[in-house]
């Protein structure tokens, strides 16, 4: 592909210094994202997926140590970029939607103020123009009577509405990349589907690249172009959504897929899969495959450095077992 990827990440590592030692929260992950694509990052809580998205935005707390061989947005290396240049990108060309709509809006300002601020920070426009844009986007995210919502405060809106406002705020400057960190987790189940649909529609309409962080494989199946499966700070498997779902190659991915019911195939009352055990502690030096304590296929070789298998289609996984000799799922 000749076009520069929107986002290229190589060897991203995030360490958290703690009293008991260093916690290696993210351990050398790679991924790439092109214009208009949706990448889903899947994994359990604590697998490092939220930290990864914050690292891309440059929003990690200062005490965390973050390094990468490459962390480039549209060809611009983000590491070592002066804070002002980073601010120019944030909210403008890359935007983020957070997990908690209830607490992610500032209680002291109106919806209109907060929406307009996103535009005013990056464009030379007047307040009136920013308001018009805010009304337009509120309409886009499906909020009726947008004009009157502008003067409302966050506490006057429901969770679903607040998340719509958050989405509108992220899209104010038509970013090229939007990162949504579990955007529907905190919402009612009925609202979740609506918000997700909305997000995907807008992403197609505005031709944005999107990173969707989630632990819900059902969501992934519906929206992803690419999938990265994270476990204990590593991407254990990634590839196109089709490859991942049809040809899962890492035992962890296989385990995850066994945990979701498949319409038509899962019979009522049938036992869904589960993965026994817990995620190991990442404090101190981590060697070998982190999943080996929970893996049915674990061998002594799993404690040694793990090779990465890669197919021509860009499907890769990190396991001692190659595709051929793995056990049938």
């Amino acid at each position: 592909m000749s076009e520069e990827p929107i986002l290229a990440v190589e060897g991203l590592t995030i360490d958290i210094p703690m009293a008991q030692g260093t916690l290696h929260a993210v351990r050398g992950i790679d991924f790439e994202l092109n214009r208009g694509e949706t990448l889903c990052i899947v994994g359990e809580s604590g697998s490092g997926k939220s930290l990864t998205s914050l690292a891309v935005m440059g929003l990690l707390p200062k005490r965390l140590e973050c390094t990468a061989r490459k962390l480039a947005f549209c060809g611009t290396e983000l590491q070592g970029l002066p804070p002002s240049a980073m601010r120019q990108l944030r909210g403008n060309r890359m935007a983020m939607i957070f997990q908690e709509p209830m607490t992610s809006l500032n209680p002291a300002y109106t919806i209109g103020d907060q929406l307009a601020e996103a535009l005013l920070l990056h464009r030379r426009v007047g307040k009136a123009e920013a308001r018009t844009r805010a009304v337009e986007l509120l309409g886009k995210v499906g909020i009726t009577a947008a004009e009157s919502r502008l003067s409302q405060y966050p506490h006057q809106l429901s969770g679903g509405l607040r998340q719509r406002v958050m989405i509108a705020m992220a899209l104010m400057c038509e970013p090229e990349l939007v990162i949504a960190d579990e955007p529907t987790t905190a919402l009612d189940v009925t609202i979740q589907a609506q918000i997700l649909r909305l997000l995907v529609d807008l992403q197609r309409e505005m031709n944005m690249a999107m990173i969707l962080v989630t632990h819900d494989l059902g969501v992934v199946a519906r929206v992803a172009d690419k999938v990265a499966v994270m476990y204990a700070g590593e991407v254990v498997e990634q590839g196109t959504a089709r490859e991942i779902f049809e040809n899962p190659s890492h035992p962890y991915t296989q385990g995850l897929l066994r945990c979701i019911p498949v319409p038509g195939r899962t019979k009522p009352g049938e036992h869904l899969g589960s993965i026994p055990g817990i995620v190991p502690s990442l404090i101190g030096k981590v060697e070998g495959c982190a999943f080996r304590t929970r893996c049915d296929l674990a061998e002594s070789a799993c404690a040694k450095p793990i090779p990465i298998h890669e197919t021509e289609g860009g499907h890769s996984w990190r396991c001692i077992h190659s595709h051929m000799d793995r056990m049938p799922a």
């Binding site: 929003l59 804070p83 957070f98 992610s104 500032n106 002291a108 601020e117 920070l121």
Partner: peptide, 25 residues
């Protein structure tokens, strides 16, 4: 608070984050 992170994600500078978004609350 989460909304401080939101303000940073918008690209607001540190002074703006401190005095407009944090101090007000």
């Amino acid at each position: 608070a989460d909304y401080i992170r939101t303000a940073r994600a918008k690209g607001a500078g540190e002074w703006r984050v401190m005095f407009k978004h944090a101090l007000r609350n």
